[in-house]
């Protein structure tokens, strides 16, 4: 395979991943690394490096739109970014120390979790939660736009949310993914933040979290420009296209297809990891 063919193939795969990721809201980044390693035989460390950089591109692009609409809570995001960036640094350092076969198995387990989550319905919003004194002191409570005008919400479980965010950051730094699903669990479940605010604020934080581990990856020579170039451009083009077609899509069918693809990739990553092929 020549460099031109390799780039075209990677850009096509990344474009499809970005397109599906935007349509399903599941983030296409999770399939980039398994696709590169399983289909094209790219070293998992280069694949993770390229995927991590593409995560910054898509999350920053999407966050730009959400922030302007007023859904994201900048204070919640900034406060929790302390936890995610420290976690991301730990994850990145960990990634440079553990064998690639172990990385493949952990990646596969994370994919299994993603596949399972794509079947689950979005949880309901919760109302009337009692405010956490820590949340009030940190000015985390806010409002978000609804059809009937701005609606207030209170934040709970700040400490539990902070701890979960550290874990989300570690996973992100270790595997080069956005780990948006974990971030949403922390905010939606533990802190009882409205779903729309959780998802958009999580997206807002993903870029900063990924940047924290990207520095380590870059310094260690894990970011190969020839691999990252088609990945970043493909994912960006795909996700922009996907955001435009959001209205005409059938999310249920798409999520099912996405879930099956991710599930198959998960098993293959785990198998190859144990077989020592990665």
């Amino acid at each position: 395979m020549t460099n031109l063919e390799f780039s075209a193939l990677v850009a096509t795969i990344a474009g499809a991943a970005g397109f599906l990721g935007a349509l399903t809201g599941l983030g296409g980044g999770v399939v980039i690394t398994p696709a590169l390693t399983l289909l094209l035989g790219v070293d998992i460390r280069y694949a993770i490096g390229a995927s991590l950089v593409s995560v910054i591109a898509t999350s920053s692009g999407a966050a730009a739109a959400y922030v302007k609409e007023g859904y994201s809570n900048i204070r919640i995001g900034m406060f929790l970014e302390i936890a995610t960036t420290i976690g991301a640094l730990c994850g990145a350092f960990l990634a440079t120390r553990i064998p690639t076969s172990a990385l493949a198995v952990i990646f596969g387990l994370m994919l299994l979790h993603s596949a399972w989550q794509s079947y689950r319905a979005e949880p309901d919003e919760l109302d009337g939660a009692k405010p956490d004194p820590l949340a009030a002191r940190l000015k985390l409570d806010g409002t978000y736009p609804t059809a009937e005008g701005p609606k207030k919400y209170h934040v709970r479980g700040v400490k539990a949310g902070f701890g979960l965010m550290f874990a989300a950051g570690t996973v992100s730094g270790l595997l080069g993914i956005g780990s948006g699903a974990l971030k949403v669990i922390a905010m939606d479940r533990a802190m009882r933040i409205p779903f729309k605010v959780s998802t958009t604020t999580s997206n807002f934080m993903i870029g900063v979290t990924a940047a924290a581990s990207a520095g380590v990856y870059l310094g260690r020579g894990y970011i190969d420009p020839a691999v990252a170039m088609p990945v970043v451009l493909g994912v960006l083009a795909g996700s922009m296209l996907g955001a435009r077609h959001l209205i005409s899509a059938h999310p249920k069918v798409l999520r099912l297809v996405f879930g099956i693809v991710v599930g198959v990739m998960a098993l293959e990553m785990i198998f190859n990891g144990f077989a020592g092929k990665i």
Binding site: I56, S60, A210, V232
Partner: peptide, 11 residues
Amino acid sequence: LLLLIATPVAR
């Protein structure tokens, strides 16, 4: 790619 990594830092 460095500019991309710098974007959230600038934010």
